[in-house]
Simulated scan of single mutants.
Amino acid sequence: MNFETILIDKKEAIATITINRPQKLNALNKTTLQELHTALKTLEIDSNIQVIIITGSGEKAFVAGADIAEFANFSANEGHNLARKGQEIVFNFIENLTKPVIAAVNGFALGGGLELAMACHFRIVSDNAKMGLPEVSLGVIPGYGGTQRLPQLVGKGKAMELIMTAGMISAEEAKALGLVNHVTSQEELLSFTQKIAEKIIRNSPLAIAAAIKAVNANFDVDKNGFEVEIEAFGNCFGTPDFVEGTTAFLEKRKPNFPGFK
């Protein structure tokens, strides 16, 4: 599969998607969003892949934002469509993917870049990373879920401050706020992220998919998270992963989960 703006590397059960527009600091444009959707959709149905990592090319930026030149002259209606389509095909799509998606943030994650990282299930960043939502300095607001996910991660008050000031925060500040899980050196970022991915793939893919669904339900006003958890918990009992996991435990051996295969 050939792409214009992204690269895909598969290593055993881990797939790494690299946004590859270094001349634009990996800014998101329509092509990148569509290619991300295609890649993620393909990897989700690939039974050999259990974890997906998203990162940026080079050492300066994960994603420095959206490609402003592409929408600077948009009308209000075009702006609505831009946000709606982007959320549907990439940001919400990532959040609800049945496989874990980890953001490996290797530099600037601004605007759409931070929104992309926040859509992932969790974030690991290099110590040179800078994060922020500078949209109000351009006369617009975050449109790819930033006003929703940032308060979920850092709280309403701090999210309001970060959005209103259009300021950037450092990797350590982001960790202190709970926006990111870990901070590493630039050199260790991908290897560290891969080690966490390796821990994940030891566990049941079907149970992980159910856990993602249950956790996400807590943030959906139209759903009762406890009820979703009860249903997902019960459904696990009917899976081959549950049979293998409990059998392996009783036999005192490591499980070999069939997962989605």
Rank of each mutant, 00 (worst) to 15 (best):
V140F: 09
A171L: 02
K99Y: 06
Q34A: 15
N224G: 00
K252A: 13
M131D: 08
I52R: 06
I53R: 06
I141C: 14
L33R: 07
S204P: 00
E231G: 06
R123K: 11
I68K: 07
T38E: 09
Q194K: 11
A119H: 06
H80F: 15
T246K: 12
E59Q: 13
K30R: 14
N218R: 10
Q186G: 04
E172N: 11
E173R: 02
G112P: 01
F242W: 00
F122L: 09
N235M: 12
F3E: 05
F91K: 01
F249E: 13
R253G: 11
A103W: 08
N20C: 12
K158H: 04
E12V: 14
K252G: 08
A69T: 13
K30S: 13
V183M: 08
G139N: 11
T38G: 10
A61W: 07
I102R: 03
R253S: 13
I196C: 02
L33D: 10
N218S: 08
A72M: 15
V90M: 02
T42C: 08
E161I: 01
A129W: 01
E188I: 07
P255T: 10
E115M: 05
G155W: 08
K60L: 14
E4C: 03
G111S: 12
M160Q: 15
A69K: 11
A13L: 13
R149G: 02
F237W: 14
A211Y: 04
D46W: 00
I17Q: 06
E59R: 15
S137W: 04
G58P: 04
P258E: 12
G157D: 15
S57F: 02
D9C: 13
N92H: 10
V215C: 05
I201L: 04
N128D: 14
I94Y: 09
A217V: 09
V101C: 06
S126E: 07
M168G: 09
G259N: 05
A103C: 10
A39T: 04
F192L: 10
G225R: 09
I200F: 05
N81R: 15
N256W: 07
N96V: 08
K24G: 03
Y144T: 09
T193K: 06
Y144V: 09
A117R: 06
N26F: 03
F219Y: 14
V101F: 02
I89T: 00
L40V: 01
N29G: 00
A72R: 01
N256R: 00
T193L: 10
I141Y: 15
N203S: 14
A209F: 01
E44K: 12
G113A: 07
I6H: 04
K85D: 02
T147H: 14
I8D: 02
P205L: 06
N77V: 13
T18N: 03
E115S: 07
K254F: 12
N203K: 07
N20Y: 13
I89P: 04
F62L: 10
V105C: 10
I52K: 04
F242Q: 06
